[in-house]
């Protein structure tokens, strides 16, 4: 069964039509997990790629993400047993002293669209709060955002805190934000740098090998 039309509808962000198509696919006997993987997540892959090269922008990406969420709501009752499988758990937050929300939210939305489970700690998140969330939520990736060059050092502090707490071996670290660079990521001992929400998905998949 092909989910090409559904994918295109999600990319366009037509919520009603996409939900309709999802229902139809279920009626036609398609498997919910298959619709999710081949229809919805595949569509969000395209959206992420288009976003990274500038062919799509924030409002359109959000529209697609919301469309996908609608479709997921339709699918939810149809998952067998354990429910949806996720690609892994990612702890996200904007670091201490920094209140910038939007970029981090876009990353959360795209990662969610790609099939990850997201624990969003919000903004002004202390190193201790990151450490606590990793332990409690069994996070596999910690994603940190900073939009001010003066708050970037909090990324290093958080990584130190994770190391001290003994989590550094089990958790991967991804960082991003306007003043952040790949070199900076290397210098503070992060595992990778993601320049935008689309790349965050690619990098997260690479880090967890999924």
């Amino acid at each position: 069964m092909s989910f090409e039309t559904l994918s295109q509808t999600v990319i366009k962000g037509d919520m009603q039509a996409a939900a309709e198509l999802t229902r139809k696919a279920l009626d036609d006997g398609a498997d919910a997990q298959q619709i999710l993987d081949q229809g919805l997540i595949a569509a969000m892959d395209v959206v992420g790629r288009k976003f990274a090269e500038g062919a799509m922008f924030v409002p359109q990406m959000l529209r697609s993400a919301k469309t996908m969420q609608q479709c997921v709501e339709v699918l939810k009752p149809h998952f067998q047993g354990a429910g949806m499988t996720t690609k892994g758990t990612i702890i996200l937050g904007t670091v201490k002293g920094d209140l910038h929300d939007i970029g981090k939210n876009l990353v959360a939305m795209m990662l969610e669209g790609a099939g990850f489970r997201i624990v969003d700690l919000g903004v002004d998140v202390s190193p201790a709060a990151f450490v606590e969330a990793v332990a409690k939520e069994n996070g596999q990736i910690v994603g940190m955002s900073a939009l001010l060059s003066t708050t970037m050092p909090a990324m290093a502090e958080t990584i130190t805190a994770l190391t001290t707490a003994g989590h550094r071996e089990t958790v991967k670290i991804m960082i991003g934000g306007a003043p952040v660079t790949a070199d900076y990521a290397t210098s503070v001992g992060a595992d990778c740098y993601a320049p935008d929400a689309g790349s965050a998905v690619t990098e997260a998949k690479r880090l967890l090998d999924v």
Binding site: F57, V58, P59, L62, L99, H100, D101, I102, N105, V123
Partner: peptide, 16 residues
């Protein structure tokens, strides 16, 4: 603005 609950929505709406 960074604390304002409506900023996120308004900002995205104003990008087009």
């Amino acid at each position: 603005l960074s604390l304002h609950p409506g900023f996120y929505e308004a900002f995205i709406a104003a990008m087009d």
